[in-house]
Design a protein around this nucleic acid. Structure first.
Length: 799
RNA sequence: GCCUCAGUGGCGGAAUUGGUAGACGCACAGGACUUAAAAUCCUGCGUGAGUUAAAUCACGUGCCGGUUCAAGUCCGGCCUGAGGCACCA
């Protein structure tokens, strides 16, 4: 095997020394912005899955560079995060120490892959130089009225005395100590993301974000068109408003249900006769975990509210109101009108509590189950005989004419809870003054730097450890100068990744987060490579953030990402996920040491369809290493001719075409197989000229940059492959002189014959009938049909 | 339950978008080289029948049907698996 260790080291040093991949803005060149999701620098080091997407992005970057683009291909670290914080709590060491060590490891690993990254633009979200601008942008949100404080329920572990993210409270248990998670009200910073629901849906249209990613986002935003309807309450001068998408079924609403948290209960607790039972039910609901509450297989529970009766606004019938946990406070108005004949949940509830079930749509058998299909309206007064659409429109008008409701669009998307009671995050740059309320820190004072603390654990009442630092907390009001207190919450992990792609454009700017000129030049991210796990949250947060900055006139484009793709995962050889606990994690550094970075890169591209998951197989990696060996050995038969030989002309031109198209279509696996086929043909022809060899090396270069540079130099070229442009092909040289014409009789292949490409359709028909085996099938039979596909086949149908 | 995607040899995967199914690689088997092994090179490799060897034939892309001269590809109905969302009114 060739000495990949020395070769790879040599070229990595050359690239570093010459700053080969440093990029500067150049208005005379077309730009291309290749972005790959930056990693969280965990203690586990780089994963072979990282290596796959970094390599794929590098292939794009190298290809586009050779095609004449000015390519921005940056790298950085999403470095605020929970693992570093947990490590800090255990070891009483500042998380930045651990984080920096991890970053050094990651950077070295990334460099050992031979990525063509402009390292002068490296960023890390936990550095004050970076998060200064995250804080600055937060203040823009606040000043625009989009950041506010509100009481919100959080997941709370009573044992750890700590607020938990949804991820850390899966299954209703605390991830750290397995204690039952509770709900706790907490005053939190919120961003008004819900207001951007429509913009987040519309903005997708102008992008080439992968369809399944778009769909996932649209589902997440959860737009539904319906109406608000007011129900008067008999006993008091008040009303209950519901949101419904089927106001056309209003005549079938035989009861109402409100969520256990609905404010009407405490408002009228004097009037509710069975308030004790109601309160007991509320307490039960509160103690249940989200999982328990949303378990759809469990039986419906609830309590009828005695003393409050609703009036159905279309027929003035008195209907009971129930409290039940199947209605969620967080969606719609926290109250529903129940139409048991046509809704499964309402049906189950009505059956259990013996409530009237009145069908208002034709079809189904309500003795058995709710009829949830569409149908013609019955028992519905002025809607009788109408279909769904007609009935809906008529009802919308009725509601508005009678001032009992109106059309309304609801979204599942909620405002973003932007507070964490944690240490290792960006401090929220706000000060609370008794007189002025919440006031942002003056811009000149930014960044609000994370101070040193004794302990990294949240306090006993769940506040951030920052709250224990009097020096940090006590300050003066930026507005009036009176004594005031700093916010001690930090930002969520998602914050830093909301704008990192902007920072890369001007990573070392200490006057602004990025200059207008540079943002105008680099524009949108042309291609964003990342995982499916970020299809919704990260991408929605980042898009929301960027749309806002654009509205503030701070960035040139509303949508940050023009094209987004989603790569598959690398699985263990048995098809399961690689995980530390299973001990089946493959370390890319070990692979590089054994087979070389070029072989690893080539294999990661060859392993399968880039958008799909693929199982690791070290034998195949070895196969790729052998291929590179054969490429190396091919140099032994290279002739000194500066021409494209007759023998290799076609394979060279076809190869250029196929490899180029495959890279552009992200079909890396077939690009590699094309290169393998090319090598096989050169060997079969036992000939390759210097010129041909160099073109082959150029095509292979994005995949295996080190060995190709070395061989290029070895056969005597001064100019490095990284500095010359991508080869072009000659269309006229792609054409074959002959092809294998296929003859089918009654749909089955009965013969093949080598014919000239110029053969006319008539000649094709004639030739096809001269084949012996074909004769066996058509002789003595009547030909009913003949189909000729030029340059392909003749299909004969006989009777 | 809903949404999205997938199902092709022993294995990873190709298939110009309706036109020769199995490219390329791995594994395996046989051979060459070698004292031997490794490495390398050559040959074979979907299943079955057939033949000294071929030719050739049948079957074959999760299952059942359909459209078509022609279906891995299109249509209808299932089955299985993966991921996401989930009492969303």
């Amino acid at each position: 095997m060739y000495n990949f260790k020395n070769i790879e080291k040599k070229w990595q040093e050359i690239w570093e020394k010459k700053e080969t991949y440093k990029v500067v803005e150049d208005n005379n060149k077309k730009k291309f912005y290749m972005l790959v999701e930056f990693p969280y620098p965990s203690g586990a080091g780089l994963h072979v899955g990282h290596a796959r997407c970094f390599t794929a992005s590098d292939v794009q970057a190298r290809y586009k560079r050779a095609k004449g683009f000015n390519v921005l291909f940056p790298f950085g670290f999403d470095s605020f995060g929970n693992p570093a914080e947990q490590y800090a709590i255990k070891n009483h060491e500042h998380p930045s120490i651990m984080t920096h060590k991890c970053i050094d490891v990651f950077r070295n690993q990334a460099k050992s892959l031979g990525l063509s990254v402009d390292w002068s633009r490296e960023i890390s979200t936990c550095e004050p130089e970076y998060y200064k601008w995250t804080q600055w942008q937060f203040i823009k949100f606040f000043n625009a009225g989009l950041a506010y404080k509100d009481e919100k329920e959080i997941n709370w572990c009573p044992k750890c005395k700590m607020g938990l993210s949804n991820e850390d409270s899966q299954g209703g248990k605390c991830v750290r100590c397995d204690t039952q998670v509770e709900k706790k009200l907490k005053n939190q910073w919120m961003l008004r993301m819900k207001d951007y629901s429509e913009k987040l849906i519309d903005g997708l249209e102008d992008t080439e974000i992968l369809d399944k990613v778009k769909t996932a986002q649209i589902n997440w935003i959860g737009k539904s068109i319906g109406a608000h309807v007011d129900f008067k309450i008999k006993e008091i001068d008040d009303k209950l408003t519901v949101f419904t998408t089927r106001c056309d079924t209003l005549f079938g609403a035989t009861f109402m249900v409100i969520s256990p948290e609905h404010p009407i209960i405490s408002k009228y607790e004097d009037i509710i006769k069975n308030i004790d039972m109601v309160k007991k039910y509320q307490d039960e609901a509160k103690s249940k975990s989200d999982i328990e509450r949303t378990d759809m297989t469990k039986e419906k529970t609830g309590v009828k509210i005695d003393g409050l009766t609703a009036i159905n606004p279309v027929n003035n019938k008195e209907i009971p109101i129930y409290i039940s946990d199947y209605v969620l406070m967080g969606y719609g108005t926290g109250a529903i009108m129940a139409v048991p004949a046509h809704d499964t949940r309402d049906y189950e509830f009505a059956k259990k509590f013996g409530i009237d079930i009145i069908p208002v749509l034709e079809g189904g058998n309500i003795e058995k189950e709710a009829y949830i299909e569409d149908g013609v309206h019955i028992n519905s007064g002025f809607l009788d005989g109408l279909n769904k659409e007609e009935a809906l429109n008529k009802m919308y008008k009725y509601l508005e004419d009678n001032k009992i409701g109106s059309k309304f669009t609801n979204y599942k998307l909620q405002d973003w809870i932007f507070s964490r009671q944690r240490f290792w995050g960006e401090p929220i740059p706000m000060v609370h003054c008794d007189k002025c309320g919440w006031v942002p820190v003056n811009e000149e004072e930014l960044p609000v730097v994370l101070p040193n603390v004794e302990s990294y654990e949240p306090t006993k009442d769940g506040e951030s450890p920052l709250s224990l630092l009097d020096d940090f907390v006590n300050t003066t009001c930026p507005k009036c100068g009176a004594p005031a207190k700093r916010e001690t919450d930090t930002m969520p992990n998602w914050a830093g990744s909301c704008w990192y792609f902007l920072r890369y454009m001007d990573a070392n700017n200490d006057k602004e987060f990025a200059s207008k000129d540079k943002m105008n030049y680099w524009g949108q991210v042309d291609l964003y490579d990342g995982g499916m796990e970020h299809a919704t949250r990260h991408l929605l947060y980042a898009r929301f953030w960027n749309i806002f900055l654009h509205e503030q006139g701070l960035v040139p484009y509303s949508e940050p990402f023009y094209k987004r793709i989603a790569h598959g995962m690398i699985l263990a050889s048995d098809g399961s996920k690689m995980s530390k606990s299973k001990g089946n994690v493959v370390d890319p550094t070990l692979m590089i040491n054994e087979y070389g970075a070029d072989a690893l890169r080539l294999y990661e591209m060859f392993i399968g369809d880039y958008s799909k998951d693929a199982a690791w197989n070290e034998d195949s990696l070895n196969g790729c290493a052998k291929f590179l060996d054969r490429v190396y050995n091919l140099s032994n038969i290279v002739t000194d001719e500066d021409i494209i030989s007759k023998e290799n002309e076609k394979i060279i031109n076809k190869g250029i075409k196929k490899v180029s198209e495959d890279i552009e279509n992200l079909k890396y696996n077939t690009a590699v197989s094309t290169l393998m086929t090319m090598l096989n043909e050169f060997n079969a022809n036992k000939k390759i000229t210097k010129k041909e060899y160099r073109i082959f090396l150029q095509l292979l270069n994005p995949f295996a940059p080190h060995i190709t540079e070395e061989l290029n130099q070895m056969i005597g070229f001064d100019k490095e492959l990284s500095t010359i442009s991508w080869p072009s092909y000659d269309e006229s040289k792609l054409k074959d002189d002959t092809y294998e014409m296929v003859v089918q009789v009654n749909g089955k292949v009965r013969g093949k014959i080598e014919v000239s490409t110029d053969t006319t359709e008539e000649e094709m028909k004639k030739l096809s009938k001269e084949i012996d085996n074909v004769k066996n099938y058509i002789d003595g039979k009547e030909i009913v049909k003949e189909v000729v596909v030029p340059k392909k086949l003749v299909s004969i149908v006989v009777k």
